[in-house]
Amino acid sequence: MEVRTIKVFTTVDNINLHTQVVDMSMTYGQQFGPTYLDGADVTKIKPHNSHEGKTFYVLPNDDTLRVEAFEYYHTTDPSFLGRYMSALNHTKKWKYPQVNGLTSIKWADNNCYLATALLTLQQIELKFNPPALQDAYYRARAGEAANFCALILAYCNKTVGELGDVRETMSYLFQHANLDSCKRVLNVVCKTCGQQQTTLKGVEAVMYMGTLSYEQFKKGVQIPCTCGKQATKYLVQQESPFVMMSAPPAQYELKHGTFTCASEYTGNYQCGHYKHITSKETLYCIDGALLTKSSEYKGPITDVFYKENSYTTTIK
């Protein structure tokens, strides 16, 4: 009895394709271990004539594949690729409408935090270190965002349907971005203890939790000093293409032309909904596939993004 075979390709990165001759009487799992086709788990399936010449994702289970996976995804987590594939199996079914010149995501599976993050990423200057993220990001900007969303979920250790947080998501993504040249110098002034300067680099240099107003941050924000008295913390120097200011959701007025974009969060910790506000020729609110415009805006804002380049204080 002759062994019926077909020729397929296996890959971990969709760049390096490895030619395989597979036995049609055995499952993919018996031949390769966990195997995925377009995100779908085909591990328990036997090869079919229609699979001839198709590319299958496999887990990096030998040295060659491990090197290829690390170079593309910059992670050695053995569960990463499987999590990416199972997320992709959902995100490829989502709709990605162009809204006001940006790629958004039609609401499904509690994905409003991903839509808000995706919209924000198209408006701030950011370059990702893992080629996987950078490639998928370019495709997302062009309207094909399924891979990018699935990668975000995998890097953030999230599953489809789980509630997510924009600030946490951005923080994970910033860790995989090139923020080497970003720098922030802060000064804390206390009447009792004097003053202390701190220099922050990388992710810490672009994120701040405690106030939404970048102007206020430049002037000074009140913080408790270690001595128990009130101290003032203010920005001395900022070198970065953008800054992200966050605070627990509270009524906040966004003035046209003073910011790049913002995240609105309605609801409580267990259950809520994100919308995205962007400042173009007027203010726009993007909620999944829905767009509304207004000249002014007041609502429960939790993150505001500002364009920056270089700032030095005039406070002496």
Rank of each mutant, 00 (worst) to 15 (best):
S104T: 07
T159H: 15
G257D: 10
Y138A: 12
T11C: 08
G272M: 00
G161V: 01
N110W: 01
T55R: 12
M245P: 01
F217P: 01
H48C: 13
T282F: 10
H176K: 09
T278Q: 14
F148T: 03
I124E: 02
T64A: 11
L119T: 01
P241S: 09
I301H: 00
K46L: 12
A250R: 10
L119Q: 02
N129Q: 05
Y311M: 09
R141Y: 07
F242Q: 01
K95A: 11
I286G: 01
T302D: 00
G82V: 13
K233Y: 07
Q20N: 11
V189L: 10
T169V: 13
H256F: 09
Y214P: 03
C112K: 01
G272E: 00
F9I: 12
T5A: 13
L235S: 01
L186R: 02
I105K: 02
Y113P: 04
F80E: 03
Y73L: 04
D23T: 15
D63L: 11
V221D: 04
K106E: 06
G202R: 06
L153C: 07
T260V: 11
Q216Y: 06
N178I: 05
G82W: 14
R139G: 08
K201N: 13
T116D: 05
T76E: 15
T258L: 07
L126C: 09
T91W: 04
E2V: 11
A177G: 06
L133M: 08
C149P: 02
N129L: 08
Q98C: 09
V12A: 11
Q122N: 02
D180M: 12
R139L: 11
G143Y: 02
E281S: 06
E71C: 10
N14K: 11
T169Y: 00
Y72N: 14
S25M: 09
V243A: 01
I45R: 13
T199I: 15
P130R: 03
I315D: 15
L114H: 02
A177I: 05
F148D: 01
Y274V: 00
E239R: 12
K316N: 11
F32A: 08
M244P: 00
Q20G: 12
A231D: 01
H256N: 08
E296N: 09
S263L: 05
I124S: 02
N89W: 10
M244A: 00
N61I: 07
K201P: 02
G29Q: 14
K275V: 11
V236N: 04
C156W: 02
T35M: 10
G29C: 15
A154T: 07
F9Y: 12
H74P: 02
T27Y: 13
T278Y: 13
K280W: 08
V58T: 11
A247Q: 06
L88F: 08
Y28D: 05
Q222A: 12
Y274Q: 01
E253Y: 08
A142Y: 12
A142Q: 15
H90T: 13
T260D: 02
K7R: 08
V304I: 15
A247C: 08
D63P: 11
A231I: 03
D38V: 13
S246D: 00
V3Q: 12
M209G: 07
T11N: 06
Q122K: 02
Q30R: 10
N100H: 12
T64N: 11
P224L: 14
N187Y: 08
L254D: 00
T27N: 12
Q237W: 10
V188C: 12
K54T: 12
I223P: 01
Q230P: 12
F148W: 03
R4Q: 15
E168A: 09
T103I: 10
T35I: 07
K95H: 15
H90G: 14
F305V: 06
K54H: 15
P130C: 11
G101Y: 05
A154G: 06
Q216K: 10
P300T: 08
Q222V: 11
S79W: 12
T116E: 03
H74K: 08
V8Q: 05
Y297F: 09
Q216W: 05
V304E: 00
G272F: 00
T10E: 07
Q195V: 12
S181C: 15
E281F: 00
V58P: 05
V67D: 10
K280R: 15
G53E: 14
Y269T: 13
Y28I: 06
I105W: 03
K307R: 14
G164F: 02
N61G: 13
M170A: 01
E144M: 09
E239N: 14
G202F: 03
H51Q: 10
P60Q: 08
L212N: 01
H48S: 10
G101M: 05
K93W: 08
Y234I: 12
V42H: 14
A145E: 03
S295G: 11
D180V: 08
A87V: 06
A177V: 08
K127C: 13
E162V: 04
Q20M: 15
S86R: 13
F80K: 03
E264L: 06
E125H: 13
S25L: 12
G194R: 05
P248E: 09
Y138H: 13
Y311A: 06
A205Y: 01
M26D: 15
T258Y: 09
L212W: 03
Y208E: 10
T278N: 06
K316P: 09
F56H: 05
E2I: 12
T55C: 13
A289G: 12
